[in-house]
Design a protein around this nucleic acid. Sequence first.
DNA 1: AAGAGGCCCTGATAGC
DNA 2: TGCTATCAGGGCCTCT
Length: 287
Amino acid sequence: MPELPEVEIIRQSLNKKIKQKKVLKVIIRNRNLRFKIPLNFESHLKEKKITKVERFSKYLILNISDNSFCMIHLGMSGTIHILDNKKLLKLTNTSFYNSPFLPKKHNHVEIIFNNFKIIYNDPRRFGFIQIIKNKEELKERFRHLGPEPFDVKFDIDYVYNYFKKRKKNIKNFLIDQNFVSGIGNIYASEILFLSKINPSTNANLLNKLECQKIIFYAKKVLLKAIEKGGSSIQNFTNTSGVEGNFQKNFNVYQREGLACKTIGCTDLITKNIISKRSTFFCNTCQK
DNA sequence: AAGAGGCCCTGATAGC
DNA sequence: TGCTATCAGGGCCTCT
């Protein structure tokens, strides 16, 4: 489940690898991702340079030399691998695959460069790859998304006023991309734990101090996760050295029944289903 | 317009 | 052992 930090880690290594490189060929084995990959996808990329790789929220944005964009979303189980002439590099550790090697199944898209290729693998096909014609179209595509937690627009006035006129629990808002973009189910639980706010709390009941805490810890948790190379849900080891470590810093996520990490707290972590999503919290620390 | 719920998909796991 | 049911959840869609 790549969220903003994991996508940022992938962006960094992908940018290093393919910036200013020319696409020689594109192979598509399965067009049926979340959205069908259009038939002209291959010809659109062929013989063009990738000028740089950017990111917004959980979206990777490959800038193409003709001023168009190739947008990639990894959905829940998408991974990107680099197959070098000599070695295989896995750029994300968030899939359900345990193997550090290239999975045999579900390699849907290959983008081939001079002496290496990048491979998009996605067992559940919740991800997608789209061509965006120009900047205006890109802006339109992201129009519905709220600011990232790092955005100066994500401030106390925005958050407090947003909550004031709405009626939904805070957990739901944190994973609502219209409100704030980039946070998913894992980091939402972590942010609320650090903010000492119960995930079921109605957002319009939060005072300004609590809103400030959410803003502060949203930034802090995501930055820390990026610093740690993202989160690996499965505990595998990999020789390519691109594994994430943030899962070791989880306070609540997937820690149901384990001791709360707050010093002096003797409670156990609880799991609740909120709007069909598992939510982890400490009933004592998060009132 | 806000918010609830459904759907897409495969693999891991639980239960019989 | 082999079957079926359930769960995992991001984004988009429909309905109220």
